[in-house]
């Protein structure tokens, strides 16, 4: 990791020096250990603030578009991209949200980021003040404890089944692309869930969704939720209620999944953002599986490929149609 950060800082410093960039969107240490925070770096002198390690979970791509809207067209932007960030960038290009030349992509080899919720459960909620990585272990230190955990026990579920750890498109790659991909079957959870009866599944979602506060953190964190005006906030007609009525809530989540189907890059931002720990990725992964199996499409890999829901094939499967 140290190598990566070192090279990252050197490269960025050089880019600033050569005036190739005006702004870097990257990660820096947050107030809590293991929770990094986005940074918008504008000067070479600040490069040491940049970090990249297991704490860098956020998907930064969402900021790319915001930057574009506020009319900073002439600013040259660089972005630090893990695999999922990189896929989101590709999807943005495919959907015309940015142009390839708008951004300098700095790929970083991602071997997964931690799930703070998993950490908390391992430390029984005790505050971690320091951490370090040793091969496949992560060592956590707090006021009165030090524990060594298997990385695989605290990495985000998304990372454990990640297939694309490196950005598919990049201008510069820090060190070199990693070969380590997630070992878990990407659809395991979905496949297991599908085995339940219809009623059991409904029961599960009813319970799960009844926790939802309609805070829209999932939507706000999702790089693919970039609508100017989300369907749920629209009137004329106002299709669904905005309160916490369970039907309205479930439908909100269904529509969000339909709207991100064939576009979701599995970054896990939604689940990470959810304050009440709803297992949002279950639905998204199901949609992803369907898109992959039916249409052979994986979002965020090829900026020239037409996104699945904007395309068709005369031979698409239609076993469900009478």
């Amino acid at each position: 990791m140290d190598n990566i950060e070192k090279e990252l800082r050197t490269v960025i410093a050089k880019l600033f020096e050569e005036k190739k960039i005006d702004l870097v969107i990257g990660y820096t240490k947050g107030t809590l250990p293991l929770v990094s925070t986005p940074i918008f770096l504008k000067e070479e002198k600040d490069v040491d603030k940049l970090i990249f390690d297991v704490s860098c979970g956020n998907n930064l791509v969402k900021y790319l578009k915001r930057h574009r809207i506020v009319n900073m067209k002439d600013t040259k932007v660089a972005i630090i991209a893990k695999g999922c960030d990189g896929r989101a960038i590709v999807q943005y290009i495919a959907e015309g949200q940015i142009k390839r030349d708008d951004v300098l992509i700095i790929g970083v080899p991602c071997e997964g980021v931690v799930d703070p919720k998993k950490i908390r459960s391992k430390t029984n909620g005790k505050e971690v003040s320091q951490y370090r990585i040793e091969d496949k272990k992560i060592i956590l230190k707090g006021n009165d404890f030090e524990i060594s955990l298997n990385k695989s026990d605290v990495l985000s579920d998304f990372c454990l089944r990640c297939r694309y750890p490196n950005a598919p498109l990049y201008d510069i790659f820090i060190t070199e692309p990693t070969k380590s991909v997630g070992t878990k079957d990407e659809y395991e959870k979905v496949n297991e869930f599908e085995k339940l009866t219809s009623s059991q599944r409904w029961q599960y979602f009813e319970n799960e969704m009844s926790k939802c506060l309609r805070c829209y953190a999932c939507r706000n964190a999702c790089p693919m939720c970039y609508c100017e005006d989300c369907f749920v906030d629209q009137s004329n007609p106002q299709w669904f209620g905005k309160g916490t009525d369970l039907s309205d809530t479930i439908i909100f989540h269904i529509v969000r999944v339909i709207h991100t189907a064939g576009r979701c890059v599995d970054c896990g931002a939604c689940a990470r953002a959810c304050p009440v720990n709803i297992e949002l990725d279950l639905l998204n992964t199901k949609a992803g599986k369907e898109i992959q199996e039916r249409f052979g499409y994986t979002p965020g890999l090829d900026p020239d490929e037409t996104p699945a829901m904007a395309a068709y094939d005369a031979e698409d499967k239609q076993e469900f149609i009478l």
Binding site: G96, Q97, E228
Partner: peptide, 21 residues
């Protein structure tokens, strides 16, 4: 237009080339 994000789905699904960004 105030709602449009120019994602281009409409352009791609139109069989008549009637939509442009």
């Amino acid at each position: 237009p105030e709602r449009c994000t120019a994602c281009g789905v409409c352009v791609k699904v139109c069989a008549y080339s009637a939509v442009e960004l």
